[in-house]
């Protein structure tokens, strides 16, 4: 005897419980892995042009407006500012008595140790006799002989006011000057903070000159 459709036995699927264990395992592994791989430190870039050696491919400048050719030379003694295309008022000549001298010499000043854990601030050759920054004094201001980047920034800002159209700056340094000191110079010459709190771009076209030995 055949049953009516409504009373036939059917394999009725009951509620299927999905096994979520593998999915949870995947989450438990992937999320900590991605969290560890994700960038903890944010990086930024500073655009620089290659050092030019030999004759330049650029067209010769117009005679009525020669380029300033502002050059900042970095040594262990400090910063020297020169310009072949103009006078830098307020900045003493670098060759007093015929000997090149940095107009912005290094000076002893308090430096917050947080950026220099395990080492000293540049120029490191001037701080060999001082203990390096460590975790204990990371938040403290410790006296070190360092570059006067604040004065450099002010001097560059004054030059920028006199030559507002100039954006090119040449950075030269002695061969043993470290990359960190160059980065500080790039920061000090690229932007300045106005009284209103805004940032003004100064010399953002940077050219690195080959190493010199003063």
């Amino acid at each position: 005897m055949s049953f009516s459709p409504s009373s036939r036995n059917r394999d009725e699927l009951g509620e299927v419980a999905i096994n979520l264990n593998p999915m949870m395992d995947m989450f438990a592994v992937l999320i900590p892995a991605l969290l560890m791989l994700s960038a903890v430190v944010e990086v930024a870039i500073v655009k620089v042009s290659a050092p030019s050696i030999g004759p330049s491919n650029e067209p010769p400048p117009k005679e009525d407006k020669p380029p300033l050719n502002l050059t900042v030379t970095v040594s262990d003694a400090g910063y020297m500012l020169t310009a072949t295309g103009g006078e830098l008022s307020g900045v003493p000549r670098a060759d007093a008595n015929g000997i090149p001298q940095p107009q912005i010499p290094v000076k002893e000043q308090p430096i917050v140790c947080s950026k220099y854990r395990g080492t000293t601030p540049p120029p490191r050759s001037r701080n060999l006799d001082r203990p390096p920054c460590n975790d204990a004094n990371a938040r403290d201001a410790v006296m070190f002989v360092t570059y006067d980047t604040a004065t450099l920034n002010q001097a560059i800002a004054k030059i920028h006011q006199e030559y507002p159209d100039e954006r090119r700056i040449i950075i030269a340094a002695e061969s043993n000057v470290q990359y960190e000191a160059i980065m500080d110079v790039l920061d000090a010459t690229r932007v300045s903070r106005l009284a209103s709190g805004e940032f003004e771009t100064m010399f953002d076209q940077v050219v690195l000159s080959p190493a010199t030995n003063m």
């Binding site: 290659a50 061969s175 000159s209």
Partner: peptide, 28 residues
């Protein structure tokens, strides 16, 4: 941070000779 300027300019000069025209210095 401790790389000397001499090495830095050599690397940049070498890259310039290989036709790299723009350089971005990475920093934190």
């Amino acid at each position: 941070r401790f790389v000397p300027f001499d090495l830095l300019t050599r690397v940049m000069y070498t890259a310039g000779q290989a036709e790299f025209s723009k350089f971005d210095f990475i920093a934190i």
